[in-house]
Design a protein around this nucleic acid. Structure first.
Lengths: 124, 124
DNA sequence: GGCTTGTATTGACGTTCGTTGATGCAACCT
DNA sequence: AGGTTGCATCAACGAACGTCAATACAAGCC
């Protein structure tokens, strides 16, 4: 855990079939809770939604996100940082502007984790 | 019982097709954020998992939940209350004991909300 | 170079959250 | 009735969070 980011959904999802499958151990719960906590703020949820609405490979410039809120620019920047640390989004600077996108697969993996009906082909 | 619970997933899910479908408005984001915030704590995630593992119609007595944690009994009771206020679980007193269960459909609706691939039959 | 624009970081503030011991309440049992 | 057990609520504490103004950084333009 040298870095601040977590890999929860990428790696843990393999040995963590689902919330309803079996009781989570402390480590799985701690990692996954960080992801849900990142989504547990209305501003961050809207940010995620605005970015995710662009679809696969879609990007959004920060200059489009910031004016959509009644919040200061540093606040939006802070929320974007938290979403990035939760490994939900990533960004790239391109000239003066910075573009954000949703990391591929994260949302669907999160959804699969919550689903109670057992997904068909899971190697348990 | 106070009426401070929310109905987010039950009613809003209808006019709120998905996180990636279109940018959420402030109200949708505020309501949904409360649900994710409820899941954004390791203790509450483990509680949810322990209860959800019982499957449809399954129940868990508080007396089974509390000793699974290194936390005081009031703390567990407090977390269960938050999960109940988020309309993720419900409970019933039966004699001396209190039993908790996952409200049917909530987890799958949450999962559908996160899924990026458009679900086939949305009317269900 | 210096100026301007877009974004991130810092430091500080008030608020919310997680936790606890103490207490209250409900249901059982003599 | 009194005593006991299971769970919820209360009051209070430190820690974490969301927000902002000020500042710093990065890149383009004059």
């Amino acid at each position: 855990m040298s870095k601040q980011e977590l890999e929860v959904i990428g790696q843990d999802a393999a040995r963590c079939p689902g919330l309803s499958t079996a009781p989570l151990d402390e480590n799985q719960a701690a990692d996954l809770a960080k992801v849900f906590k990142a989504l547990g703020d209305p501003v961050r949820l809207r940010l995620m939604s605005m970015i995710a609405s662009r679809g696969r490979g879609g990007e959004v410039c920060v200059c489009e996100l910031t004016p959509a809120f009644d919040l200061s620019q540093p606040t939006i920047s802070h929320h974007l940082k938290l979403l990035r640390q939760a490994r939900l989004i990533d960004c790239e600077r391109r000239g003066t502007w910075v573009y954000y996108w949703v990391l591929p697969g994260v949302l669907d993996k999160l959804a699969a984790f919550l689903t109670t009906t057992q997904p068909a082909g899971v190697t348990a």
